[in-house]
Design a protein around this nucleic acid. Sequence first.
DNA 1: CTTCTGACA
DNA 2: TGTCAGTA
Length: 110
Amino acid sequence: MADQDEGRGLYAISVVADLLGTGQQNIRLYERRGLLTPGRTSGGTRQYSDSDLAVLRRIGELLDEGLNLAGVAKVLELEVDNARLRRQLERARARNARLLDSYPPAGQQE
DNA sequence: CTTCTGACA
DNA sequence: TGTCAGTA
């Protein structure tokens, strides 16, 4: 039923800052540096989804490990690419499995 | 809630 | 450079 968990809940920046234990200003800076792109209401208020929250947690981990914002942006980009490649690999494996199950084809004897 | 500016280690 | 406080 769920295509993808792309954020069931939406949070304001004050809630997110509370949840992460950081300042609202930092979260806005991450967005300015291209680390994430939360949704906006028609009035311009940021709306953070659950996936945005997951990204923000990653940012906190990477910063604790000593990376700067530029490094964090690079890692995040590589991680989304990696996830996309993994999904592609899984689809390819499933396709190969179907091919093997239907082998050999009927009436293919000499 | 938003943006911007400045100070700190 | 990233974080935080104050402002409009």
